[in-house]
Amino acid sequence: MSAVVTVGAWEAHYAAGRGFRPVMSNEQHIFERHVGPAAAAGLTALDIGCDTGEFAHYLTTCGYDVLGVDCAATAISRACEWAVGWQRVGVSGIAVWMSW
């Protein structure tokens, strides 16, 4: 049985300055081999559970416009701090940002 992690626990995680690891080069290689960065021109990617935006940022380097969604508003705020030009969008109950 898996444990349920509450929104409050995620907020505390991000408020404490914690996050997740960056996208590793082997993961980038696998993504590019199976999806291909050239396929991204004019496409939008949805990153559900985007955390502080590490994978979403990688997707923008492949040419995608990205819509990131996370239950923790603190994660979105941290993503927007370092992701220049991205904007936060208010949606009731969830935190969202986009790269376009």
Rank of each mutant, 00 (worst) to 15 (best):
C62H: 05
A41G: 11
T61W: 07
G85R: 12
A15C: 09
W97L: 09
T60G: 04
A41T: 12
R21G: 07
H13E: 03
G63T: 09
A3M: 13
Y58S: 05
G42E: 07
L67E: 07
S25Y: 11
W82M: 12
S2F: 14
V84F: 12
M1S: 15
G8F: 04
A3F: 12
I48E: 02
V96W: 06
W97K: 01
G8W: 00
V84N: 14
T74V: 09
C71P: 10
G90M: 07
A16R: 13
A73L: 07
G90I: 03
V23N: 01
T61Y: 08
I30L: 15
A79M: 06
A41H: 13
G93C: 02
R88Y: 05
V4L: 13
E54C: 03
T74F: 01
V7S: 09
T74E: 13
A16V: 12
S92N: 12
V5F: 06
N26S: 14
V4E: 14
P37Q: 11
L67A: 00
E81R: 04
A39L: 13
T52D: 04
L43W: 09
A41D: 11
A3L: 15
G90V: 09
A73N: 08
I30Y: 14
F55G: 01
M1F: 12
W97N: 03
G19Y: 04
R88T: 08
E27F: 03
I94R: 11
G8H: 04
A41S: 13
G42C: 07
G53A: 03
D65N: 10
R78I: 07
A83E: 08
F20I: 05
R78Q: 14
G90S: 12
W82K: 15
T60S: 06
G93V: 02
G93I: 03
D47I: 00
P37C: 13
A41V: 13
Y14D: 02
V69E: 00
P37R: 15
H13C: 00
A15K: 14
A16T: 12
V5S: 05
G93N: 10
F20C: 03
V23E: 01
H57Q: 04
C71N: 08
